[in-house]
Design a protein around this nucleic acid. Structure first.
Lengths: 163, 163
DNA sequence: TTGTATCCCATAAAAACCCATGTTATCCCA
DNA sequence: TGGGATAACATGGGTTTTTATGGGATACAA
């Protein structure tokens, strides 16, 4: 599960460190599957304001979801284009960095620093200022609607007490 | 189940001992799941006055709850941001401590001592003075409204006492 | 060449790890 | 039931490892 928010530098070569715990999540996902690719996959979000990213697992999930659509459904083609056509593999270098292509950086307005936001199954990459402004709003909205969150912690399966 | 209230020191390195019985709860939860992570996860509460924390189980429950929201519900994005984006994994060291990041400590006003309050499925972390003041009010409010508590003690299935 | 991507090495700061100690709680046994 | 032995816990400090980050050297393509 991707958690927390981290802001890292994007250097002159376009390289950015992927937060270590994100890397750990991806590496863990990579176990238990053929998993050749060591890196992240990103694509412009539907809103166009940020990049959406994850490991190969996330995009496998998208594939399964898209495969559930009818083969000749025009929406399917649109999804295929938007999800698969627009995404990029960004391999880790030896230090756990990826290089964020210039065209994507330009599109999103990255200038020096980028913010990784963990969102459970996936993460997003934002220009720090844009994210900060948005986070304030989201926090407010979430707080106002927190009743939507059902605290559904499962009852534990008979915790075995030792004698 | 997280129970009781404990106040521990936060040392110069930002380390705080998680109460031993809280650790026991988390360890017990960690059995019976893949459970790689050994530690707690915390995030600023909606009120912003304290940290809310729990084991990975709590946040899995949040995930399930959030997944139940419609994919394009703006509330869902807000929840993802507020819950996942703002939370942090705090791994235990060998002595059962976590290090409480400076930015969170500053945000909440921790200066040396922190209070863990068990709340059943989760716990909260407060500056001791703030918690103490609040506890008085809560106690009063709870007392005034104690009629809301249904007497739910289940009828015990004839507990067989020997001797 | 010139720009771009990849690989390797260096480093300061932060995080994780290891060991030590006083104090409290728990156990055991007479 | 008293009290000493034992274990568990909270806490401190030093050391090692990771992490984020920079820069140079190399390979490739436009």
């Amino acid at each position: 599960m991707f958690l927390s928010t981290t802001t890292n530098n994007r250097d002159a070569k376009g390289r950015v460190s992927v937060p270590a715990d994100f890397r750990a999540v991806i590496t863990a996902q990579a176990q238990g599957r053929d998993a050749a690719f060591d890196g992240i996959i990103v694509r412009p979000s539907f809103s166009g304001e940020c990049l959406e990213g994850g490991g190969e697992q996330l995009f496998e999930a998208y594939r399964a979801s898209i495969n559930a659509l009818d083969y000749f459904d025009p929406n399917r083609e649109a999804m295929e284009q938007a999800i698969f056509g627009e995404s990029r593999r960004l391999p880790f270098d030896s230090g756990g960095r990826v290089s964020l292509p210039h065209d994507l950086a330009d599109m999103l307005g990255f200038n020096g620093r980028v913010t990784f936001v963990g969102l459970g199954d996936r993460f997003e990459i934002w220009p720090p200022e844009v994210h900060e402004a948005r986070a304030v709003q989201m926090r407010k909205l979430a707080s106002e609607n927190r009743h939507l969150l059902k605290p559904i912690t499962p009852v534990m399966p008979a915790m075995s007490q030792k004698s």
